Simulated assay, not measured.
Amino acid sequence: MAVSCVVSNASNMDQIVDAVWARLHAGANADKERSPFTMLQAATIALDGAPAVRTVVLRRASREQRSVMFHTDVRSTKVAELRRDPRISLVGCDLDGGVQIRLHGVARIVEAPSETRGVWNSSRPRTLIVYRTPIAPATPITSPTEAHATTHVEGLDSSAGFDNFCLIEVAISRIDYLDLNPAGHMRASLVFEEGKWRGTWIAP
């Protein structure tokens, strides 16, 4: 799903806010034509205090709630890191369009079945296979196949792996928008204050 909303000559920050959320919404709702913002890099603070970054798939973006969501294995290192320090940053980049979006916020780990079941049921079966492996992510193994989940078992419960499934909902408080326009690079910093996004131009 392509989005033509690059702000090349933005006169106000509202246009940039519109562009950011349109791109995130397209990323979360991409189907066969994947959006550049479907896969984001998520940075957390590792348990040893070092930076940690990995790729996540954007599953939902809500401008009204100022939030984005992805799902992950509750046994993963990133969940342990966010339990200790919920601060998180995410970055996506459209290389062809020359646009980078950085999001900063606080993560909420959603484990309650009342909140996660709907997302699980609406996900593609192949997306959920990874949650069926009995081995937690980052566990040392002797070969890759040791960690492969069972996929073809007669009568396999559709809820198999659900206990390992959780959502990460990120409340966004700050956005950094960079437009690498050939006519002149532009960068804006957006902060949510007093019920609205307030932005300032900053040097690229």
Rank of each mutant, 00 (worst) to 15 (best):
G92V: 01
R84Y: 10
S89N: 14
T55D: 11
F165K: 05
I141K: 01
R75S: 04
P204W: 13
G199E: 07
S123G: 07
T150F: 03
S4E: 14
N29M: 04
L190G: 01
V119H: 07
D73E: 13
T142P: 01
A10F: 04
E194L: 08
Y131A: 04
A183E: 13
P113I: 05
P137C: 11
A188T: 07
S76G: 14
E111A: 13
Y177Q: 03
A183C: 13
L156D: 00
R23V: 06
A61I: 03
S123T: 14
G118Q: 07
D176R: 04
I101R: 11
V79S: 07
R174V: 15
G97C: 11
A147I: 02
S4R: 11
H148A: 09
T145C: 10
Q65M: 12
I175R: 08
A112D: 11
V17L: 02
E64Q: 12
L103E: 10
I109A: 06
D14V: 00
S76F: 15
L47K: 07
R132M: 00
L24W: 06
D14Y: 01
G27P: 03
E169I: 01
I172C: 01
V91E: 04
K32W: 04
P140K: 07
A149D: 00
P36K: 05
V110A: 05
H25F: 03
S159R: 13
V20N: 03
T55F: 06
D73W: 11
P86A: 02
G49E: 12
I141T: 06
T145Q: 06
F192M: 03
A43C: 10
P134H: 07
A188G: 06
K32S: 03
Q100A: 14
R102D: 10
F37E: 12
P113L: 07
V110K: 00
V110W: 01
A188V: 12
A10M: 10
I135M: 06
Q41N: 11
A160S: 07
W21G: 02
A149W: 00
N12G: 09
P204L: 15
T77G: 14
R66H: 00
L190R: 02
I109L: 14
D157L: 11
T44Q: 01
D163M: 11
L128K: 12
V6Y: 13
A138K: 08
E115V: 01
G97N: 11
A26N: 03
R117F: 09
L167G: 04
A147S: 06
F192A: 00
V119P: 02
S123L: 05
V99W: 05
G118D: 09
A160V: 03
E193W: 04
R117D: 01
A43S: 14
A19I: 09
E111N: 05
R63G: 01
T127A: 15
E81M: 05
R187H: 12
S189M: 15
P182K: 06
A2W: 13
D48R: 12
V91Q: 06
Y131T: 03
T139H: 04
T72Q: 01
V68R: 03
L156M: 14
R117T: 08
A10E: 12
N12S: 08
C5H: 13
L95S: 15
S114F: 03
I168V: 13
P36G: 09
T145N: 05
N164M: 08
V106G: 12
P36Q: 10
D96A: 15
M13H: 06
D73F: 14
A80V: 09
S173D: 15
Q65K: 14
A147P: 02
G118H: 05
R34K: 10
E33F: 11
V153F: 06
V3Y: 13
I168F: 09
L180E: 12
